[in-house]
């Protein structure tokens, strides 16, 4: 198995197999996005308290979930990068930072737009909002490391350390609404006998969640392939691959 993993992580081989996956991933993402958005924005019933404005959750909630999930992937890749010193995991760290920052910004912006009509304010320094903003700054920090340190292997190592340290913020974000009083509502209870979201609203949300996952993997593969080409630009196989176009 180790041999297989090793082969899988060689940059050339990775470039080849990920290329086959990209069109399929993009196709699945597009279909799920369309189904989820149509179902969530037009078919799902209005909420008994919030009326129509609750529908922003079909973007907000999956982005917020992804902002944390992408960080976990990035920290995991950072761990592998530090222990095994593989180039591919360093590339995953740098690409996850950009994608994660995008999801975090999306979650914050949609949350603010939601906050104004629901709470009466765009922003408030409660534990959930603040810890999510810190997450955005952590992503920015990792992006900054890659643009400041020119040598990619050194940058990869420094970024991996920051990624691993920042993982402490993830449980804080998740439990912020449980540990402290906050304006943000508690976490949705999805895996219980009495879920807090009615099924007619929950199913489109789950479709959107899977769509966002697929979107993340597609983006990661596309960005990863570009970065591989850039890092290996002086090798024969890249010149040969590019000559074909």
């Amino acid at each position: 198995m180790w041999k297989y993993l090793h082969r899988l992580s060689s940059l050339k081989y990775c470039y080849e197999w990920s290329g086959k996956w990209v069109p399929w991933l993009l196709g699945v993402t597009a279909v799920l996005m369309l189904v989820g958005l149509y179902w969530g924005l037009l078919v799902a019933p209005t909420d008994y308290q919030q009326g129509e404005s609750y529908r922003i959750m079909y973007i907000h909630v999956p982005s917020a979930w992804m902002s944390m999930f992408v960080y976990a992937v990035m920290a995991g890749a950072g761990f592998v990068a530090l222990v095994w010193k593989t180039k591919l995991s360093e590339i995953i760290v740098s690409e996850c930072a950009v994608i994660g920052a995008m999801f975090t910004a999306l979650a914050l912006i949609t949350g603010m737009l939601w906050g104004k009509p629901t709470w009466g304010t765009y922003w408030l320094w409660d534990a959930r909002l603040t810890s999510e903003l810190i997450l955005l700054f952590l992503y920015f920090g990792i992006i900054a490391i890659h643009s400041v340190i020119e040598e990619p292997r050194t940058a990869g190592r420094v970024a991996s350390i920051l990624a691993i340290i920042g993982i402490i913020n993830i449980p804080i974000i998740h439990y912020s609404v449980t540990w402290w009083s906050s304006l943000h509502q508690p976490n949705m209870q999805l895996v219980s006998k009495t879920p807090s979201v009615h099924p007619s609203m929950l199913y489109p949300l789950l479709v959107m969640a899977v769509a966002f996952q697929m979107y993340f993997v597609s983006l990661l593969f596309i960005r990863m392939r570009n970065e591989i080409l850039y890092r290996e630009r002086l090798t024969k196989w890249v010149k040969k691959a590019l000559a074909g176009h």
């Binding site: 008994y48 308290q49 304006l183 979201v197 009615h198």
Partner: peptide, 18 residues
């Protein structure tokens, strides 16, 4: 000086609530 509404994690259609 400022009153903000805090809502909970429950989402349901009006008929279900009724």
């Amino acid at each position: 000086q400022e009153v903000l509404a805090k809502h909970d994690e429950n989402y349901m259609p009006p008929e279900v609530a009724a």
